[in-house]
Design a protein around this nucleic acid. Sequence first.
RNA 1: GGCGGCAUAGCCAAGUGGUAAGGCAGAGGACUGCAAAUCCUCCAUUCCCCAGUUCAAAUCUGGGUGCCGCCUCCA
Length: 433
Amino acid sequence: MEIYNTFTRSKEEFIPREQDQVSMYVCGPTTYNYIHLGNARPLVFFDTVRRYLLYKGYKVNYIQNFTDVDDKIINRAREEKMDPLALARKYIEEFFADSDALNVMRANIHPKVSEHINEIIELIEYLVAQGHAYQVDGDVYFAVRSFADYGKLSGRSLEDMQAGARVEVDLRKKDPMDFALWKGAKPGEPSWQSPWGNGRPGWHIECSAMAHKYLGDGFDIHGGGYDLIFPHHENEIAQSEAAGHKPFARYWMHNGFITINQEKMSKSLGNFFLVREILDKFPPDVVRWYLLSTHYRSPLDFDDEKLAVAGKGLERIKTAVRLLYEAMAFPASDGEAKTEAKAFEERLSSLRNEFEKAMDDDFNTALATSVFFELAREVNIFVGSAGRISQRDKDSMEKAHLLIKDFNSVLGVLRKIKQPANFCWRQMVQMTS
RNA sequence: GGCGGCAUAGCCAAGUGGUAAGGCAGAGGACUGCAAAUCCUCCAUUCCCCAGUUCAAAUCUGGGUGCCGCCUCCA
């Protein structure tokens, strides 16, 4: 199995840290609003990665955090006259409502910043002690110059970044690129006691602290959107590796963006669609199928028509499954197997190979979905071919059924495959004639 | 200014050296009381343009053009 590693910018053979177990950390949302489609892509994609690893027989330890302490939460809470942590809790629940709808498995652990303040403080203290961080007033900054490898993930040097720096320079910092590990409390903000006075963690430090706590050093896969490569993941590496947790993560995976008219969907551009708005118009399995219909590193353009097309495609799969169920529900007759049975079964196993080959190649879900279409066609042909259905034919159908279930255990698009409730009389006649 | 990505049929989209998957739409046919569904056939001599490497390139190299992203919170 090969994974494209952002760190080396190439596909690499995937060799987990432990033979039978894979450790994954996927950056979760800052919970100050309902999630939008752009948030849903990594959710669904990395869920599919996890499902495929499970399919391959690995145990997967999957961690996804919630950033529940953050400027945006504080601002939003102020607007709504709510307690920031209560607001964050509310949107965590709403997050689960959406992700459950999209058939995303819950992480093994969903750590929250607010519940890991001690771990964060310990990590910062260590960085300060090692000379990688320094205190200014009530704040603590990471000294990027103290970490020689700074920029190694995003492929840029500190010098490159100086040139285009658009940030206003905080003169208290030793280097303009130094970033906050700890922010001194301002009135009315949630804060915790620390060696540097009351305050709260900066954005990046949480992932370093929580990933280390739950997965240890050198865990297997760290995932998130492309826009997290810099500065978020770059900073995570700096913090963790400067603290001796080296390497921090081994495979870095980043998904491409959802676009609207070819432009990035983002909160700052205001061109985003909430998952629940979309779910008002389209079934969740269609949204999931649509998200998986393009390779995860490519941009994926969104509009209603594209979802409608995805819906038609998924319908084709579902029809095949329904026809298979109907045939399997039909009483077996005595006699020989269909002459096609053997070829059908051979075809099934080659389709399984194709599916695995696609997924083994950096999780090529687009190719995998096309294999699902081919499976649908084979099923339709076999089920529709003339002749009685013998017990032997039913065995073949059971094999197809198993393959469908396996594909679906990875793609997660057939939440509930309809049983043959509205059994079609004509097909029954046709199949017996 | 620095760094990176993408460009494949009407649309979506796989495909990193061996002669263009799959889906949607469209055309014809089979089946069907009609329809739906399903099946069969057709639908890119060609992969943005130019040059080069090679027996062979959508795939590699160089040069263009166009679009997008990161460098600031963002999945």
